[in-house]
Amino acid sequence: MFFSIIIPLYNRPQEIDELLNTLTQQTYMQFEVLVIEDGSVNDAKAIVDKYTNLLDVKYFLKPNEGQGFARNYGFERAKGDYFVIFDSDCLIPKDYLEIVRDYLFEHKLDAYGGPDAAHQSFTPVQKAISYAMTSPFTTGGIRGNKKHVGQFHPRSFNMGVSREAWEKVGGFILTRLGEDIEYSIRIHENGFKIGLIPEAKVFHKRRTSFSQFYKQLHFFGRARINIYKHFPSELKLVHFFPAIFTCGVIFTILINIIYWPLAFVCNFLMLVYFMLIFFHSWQVNKSLKVAFLSIIAAFIQLFAYGLGFMQDLFKRVVLKQR
Rank of each mutant, 00 (worst) to 15 (best):
F3A: 03
I5T: 07
I6T: 06
I7K: 01
P13E: 07
Q14I: 10
E15Q: 14
I16K: 00
I16P: 01
D17V: 01
D17E: 15
E18V: 09
E18C: 09
E18R: 15
L19K: 04
T24R: 08
Q25H: 12
Y28R: 06
M29C: 08
Q30N: 15
E32S: 11
V33Y: 00
I36T: 03
D38R: 02
G39F: 03
D43I: 12
D43R: 14
I47G: 06
V48L: 05
D49R: 15
K50Y: 10
N53Q: 14
L54P: 00
D56P: 01
D56V: 13
K58F: 13
K58N: 15
F60E: 07
F60D: 06
N64G: 10
G74L: 08
F75G: 00
E76W: 03
R77K: 15
R77F: 04
R77G: 06
K79G: 11
K79W: 11
G80D: 05
D81P: 05
D81V: 07
C90D: 10
L91K: 08
D95I: 00
D95C: 02
Y96S: 11
L97Q: 02
E98Q: 14
I99N: 08
V100C: 06
L104R: 03
L104F: 03
K108F: 11
Y112M: 12
H119S: 10
Q120D: 13
S121A: 11
P124A: 01
P124S: 03
K127A: 02
P136D: 12
F137D: 04
G140D: 01
G144W: 01
H148L: 01
F152R: 00
H153C: 09
H153A: 11
H153F: 09
H153W: 05
H153M: 14
P154D: 00
S156V: 08
N158W: 02
E164F: 12
V169A: 06
I173E: 12
L177N: 09
D180Y: 01
D180E: 13
E182S: 13
I187Y: 01
K193R: 15
G195K: 03
I197N: 00
P198N: 07
A200E: 09
K201R: 14
H204E: 05
R207A: 06
S209D: 09
S211V: 14
Q212H: 12
F219P: 00
F219N: 12
A223V: 02
R224I: 07
L235H: 01
L235P: 00
F241L: 15
P242N: 05
I244K: 08
F245K: 00
F245Q: 05
T246M: 12
T246L: 06
V249N: 01
V249Y: 03
F251Y: 15
F251M: 13
N256T: 11
Y259F: 15
P261T: 08
L262W: 13
V265G: 01
C266D: 10
N267S: 14
S281G: 09
W282E: 10
V284E: 12
L288D: 10
K289P: 00
K289M: 12
K289I: 14
F292K: 04
F292S: 12
I300M: 04
Q301C: 09
Q301N: 13
L302R: 02
F303V: 05
Y305W: 07
G306T: 07
F309E: 04
Q311A: 10
Q311T: 15
L313D: 06
L313C: 09
F314I: 10
L319A: 09
K320I: 00
R322G: 05
R322W: 11
R322V: 14
